[in-house]
């Protein structure tokens, strides 16, 4: 029942809901998010991060790879200069401007997070859709495989996969991290598809004579996608953290000149944490803030899409 006391005296033949109408569920969800402070904070952080990643090379005051202050660094004697004019965050162990590296690092970090998530979503969705749509032994086989992946703690799984590669680099990190998220998406999709299979509107489409594959793609899949989007934003956050962990453990790209937050964190923590600890803190804080931003965004999206909140 329409619960608001409306002040208009509606003429009797106006049907309930006779507004200009045409607002889809997605549009309503976005409206709801626009009113939530959590969503706004998450969206702002995420947007800043993305913009930073895109425009970083233009924003960086110095060349992140130029070892301009190298002569000032004497690791053997435990000296790394701190903040100096023109170098507000100081320099790293190779004399490179840390601020510039931090800014440019956003690019690489975002890349890792996005690509790893996309791969996880893609593979997970294929498995989940096949399992959910076909059922039977297809479902059984695929889900047992997924169960195996899930039975290993995520970080351990990532480490195991990364360690398999003889030449660790950025891509091995991405693959390792994406494999961790595959079972999550597979289960999510399969669960949603199973629920959709018995849904009345799917039966209705079938009884209308709509072809099987159309029913799956047009009715079952789109209604299963909501939770996937939410999970994807959360997975983005955890992917970044896991990639950082792999770099920290030395399983990532060995080239220390690459500007990527996880790598920078790992490098600093392993080699000169006692000399200049801020060089580890800055990338750590950056990772935390970005992960937080994505998480807030994802959580508020989940709330917005929750049918119980619909009035």
């Amino acid at each position: 029942m329409n619960t608001l006391l409306n002040k208009k005296k509606e003429p009797i033949d106006k049907l309930a809901g006779a507004s200009a109408g045409g607002r889809s569920l997605a549009a309503e969800a976005i409206r709801r998010m626009a009113r939530s402070p959590v969503a706004i904070v998450g969206a702002v952080i995420t947007a800043l991060f993305v913009l930073l990643a895109i425009f970083a090379p233009l924003l960086a005051p110095k060349d992140p790879f130029a070892r301009t202050m190298q002569d000032k660094v004497e690791l053997g004697r435990g000296i790394i200069p701190g903040p100096m004019p023109g170098y507000p965050l100081g320099v790293d162990d190779f004399g490179r401007d840390f601020l510039s590296r931090l800014l440019v690092g956003a690019q690489q970090t975002l890349l890792v997070g996005v690509v790893a998530t996309l791969i996880g979503v893609a593979i997970g969705m294929i498995i989940g859709v096949l399992a959910g749509a076909f059922g039977g032994w297809v479902d059984t086989v695929l889900m047992r495989f997924v169960d195996v992946l899930l039975s290993v703690p995520s970080l351990l799984l990532a480490i195991s996969v990364a360690a398999l590669f003889a030449n660790p680099n950025q891509w091995t990190v991405i693959i390792a991290v994406s494999i961790v998220s595959v079972p999550i998406f597979a289960r999510l999709l399969r669960g949603a598809m199973l629920a959709q299979r018995d849904a009345d509107h799917v039966l209705a489409a079938t009884s209308l004579g709509v072809k099987r594959h159309t029913v799956v793609l047009r009715h079952m899949l789109p209604n299963s996608v909501g939770p996937v989007i939410v999970q994807a934003t959360l997975t983005l956050a955890t992917s970044i953290i896991e990639a950082a962990a792999l770099s920290f453990l030395g399983l990532g790209d060995p080239d220390p000149s690459r500007a990527e937050w996880g790598l920078m964190l790992g490098n600093a923590a392993q080699h000169f944490l006692d000399i200049r600890p801020e060089l580890a803190y800055y990338p750590a804080i950056a990772i935390i803030i970005v992960a937080l931003g994505f998480t807030l965004l994802g959580e508020s999206m989940r709330e917005a899409l929750d049918p119980k909140n619909r009035r």
């Binding site: 569920l25 209308l208 009715h219």
Partner: peptide, 24 residues
């Protein structure tokens, strides 16, 4: 079977779930 379905249709019990919420 698919073409045959045309001649027999169903009306469902629950008006909420029998329409795809994403379709106009």
């Amino acid at each position: 079977l698919r073409t045959g379905r045309r001649r027999m249709q169903m009306i469902f019990q629950d008006p909420m779930s029998s329409l795809d919420p994403r379709q106009s």
